[in-house]
Write a protein that binds this DNA or RNA. Structure first.
Length: 460
RNA sequence: UCCCCAGUAGCUCAGUCGGCAGAGCAGGUGGCUGUUAACCACCGUGUCCGUGGUUCGAGUCCGCGCUGGGGAGCCA
């Protein structure tokens, strides 16, 4: 007999008769002549209830089944005599695969997220984390679906990069040199003896590579792991995370904002439509306002606000800020939060930032003072997308690199794209984990990554 | 990296003014029951994060360290 996943059984309109199920015991309750087993196989949030009668040959063994134990059960699916579930399985055979001893760390009760982080290898067996990682999987798929429908090409940009400065934070060094005995040359480490013959790092962004492919294939995106060696200790930063980076040729900042907004709306609607059961868990137990927040995202347009106007709104507001709002400085978290959570109460796209506070590759506007940058800010999380129209004019790009103290020779291939057939183009990066946090209401990035990597933490 | 808070049983937490270490859940035993985080009775459970100090006496007060959390910065 072929195994049936529990999700299919729960959804059935009529009994398929005999079934074979495999899974882990969530809990067991004994009655006088039989035992109720709640079985979960990870295919969905719900358990299926199994009735194991004392007439079973190994009933004494069945009574030893503890939370976490693994079993294979053959039985008939029948309508449940009790309330609370439509179907249940009357077991004909119970094969015990393994009994979990009472040291099993997951108990039949609520655990704190902090505790579950210490057992990250077992936490996906809990309701909340099972749901979170099913949603993560569905969202990954939805991203590809969205871009496929829009005829974008999926580009695999390198994880190891030779650019020693991609302009976005500290990088992890990649080397095959013996760290306890580094080759030296003129008082410095001799990287010509290293694997690649020069310094290499883990990527902090696929953008520069993606730009080359946008200027070849048109509309492209990358979606993969990204690394930052920043000593960030917050609930929304990780050293290894996944980033989605679309890049579009012949596209200006407005088109870029349109895509970001459409993407967020599409993905939000996707989880609401396709992960209903798992989403209900988050709406009930994690964030009571979750559905209202998400409805708000799916329905209304995002606010689009130039940086200058945002500064004016913040300066006019009666709210007392810890840090003053001054033109020419980056907004503080508290300022962003005020805009999305108090003033507008919806996602806000800030654009046209002062060029001094943004990287060299962002396109300088006609005013000569601002660049065509845009950040999408959402309530509760803050920045979820950061992007820009790219500087396509060679001379301006070169002078911006000089201002930023970058070595133009290192970027010869990047600059080539502005020498040969340069066109206006735009793109952005979306933090995948931050998006999962947004739709689930989970407040710590460590709880939406299977095995999170943060400063001083790489246990699993 | 900076600021703040916490660390007590397997888990969640209480512990008053410095004076014998506690509860619920989990686990064990027995009972009851088409049960639903089942229920009832009984039973066991400690490097009070570590270290140094103050004190007749420290879970409690002080210093240092470690770990975890919240916030800030860096950003996605």
């Amino acid at each position: 007999m072929e195994r049936t996943k529990i999700t299919a059984l729960i959804a059935a309109d009529r009994s398929p008769g005999s079934v074979l199920i495999k899974g882990w015991v969530r809990t067991r309750r004994d009655s006088k002549t039989f035992s109720f087993i709640e079985l979960n196989d990870g295919s969905c949030l719900k358990n299926i209830q199994v009735i194991a009668d004392d007439s079973l040959p190994d009933y004494e063994e069945v009574k030893k089944l503890s939370t976490g134990s693994a079993v294979v059960i053959k039985g008939k699916m029948v309508e449940s005599e009790g309330g609370g579930q439509k179907w249940e399985i009357r077991a004909d055979e119970v094969e015990i695969i393994s009994i979990a001893p009472d040291t099993y760390p997951l108990q039949k009760k609520r655990h704190t997220d902090e505790y579950l982080r210490t057992i990250a290898h077992l936490r996906p067996r809990s309701n909340k984390y099972g749901a979170a990682f099913r949603i993560r999987s569905e969202l990954s798929w939805a991203i590809h679906k969205f871009f496929k429908e829009k005829e974008f090409r999926y580009i695999h940009t390198p994880i190891i990069t030779g650019s020693d400065c991609e302009g976005a934070g500290e990088m992890f060094r990649v080397t095959s040199l013996p760290l306890d005995n580094l080759p030296r040359k003129e008082g410095k480490t001799d990287f010509s003896a290293d694997f690649f013959g020069k310094e290499a790092n883990l990527t902090v962004s696929g953008q520069l590579s993606a730009e080359m492919f946008a200027l070849s294939l048109g509309d492209v995106y990358t979606f993969g792991p990204t690394f930052r060696a920043e000593n960030s200790n917050t609930s929304r930063h990780a050293a290894e995370f996944w980033m989605l980076e679309p890049e579009m040729a012949f596209c200006d900042l407005t088109g870029n904002m349109d895509l970001g907004e459409e993407l967020i709306r599409y993905l939000t609607r996707y989880v609401l439509d396709n992960c209903t059961e798992d989403m209900e868990l988050f709406a009930r137990f994690v964030d009571k306002n979750l559905m209202a927040t998400l409805e708000n995202i799916v329905r209304g347009d995002f606010v689009r606000l130039p940086y200058t106007e945002a500064v004016e709104i913040l300066q006019k507001s009666k709210k007392k800020f810890e840090y003053p709002v001054t033109y020419g400085k980056d907004l503080q978290s508290e300022h962003e939060r005020y805009l999305t959570e108090d003033h507008f109460k919806k996602p806000v796209i800030l654009y046209n930032y002062p060029k001094e506070i943004k990287p060299f590759y962002m396109r300088v506007n006609e005013d000569g003072k601002t660049v065509a940058a845009m950040d999408v800010l959402v309530p509760g999380i803050g920045e979820i997308i950061g992007g820009s129209q790219r500087e396509e004019r060679l001379e301006i790009l070169e002078s911006r690199m000089e201002e930023g103290g970058l070595n133009k020779e290192e970027y010869w291939w990047y600059l080539d794209s502005r020498r040969y057939g340069s066109v206006p183009h735009s793109g952005f990066g979306m933090g995948f984990e931050r998006f999962i946090m947004l739709v689930t209401g989970i407040r710590n990035i460590r709880d939406v990554i299977p095995f999170p990597r943060t400063p001083n933490s790489i246990e699993f």
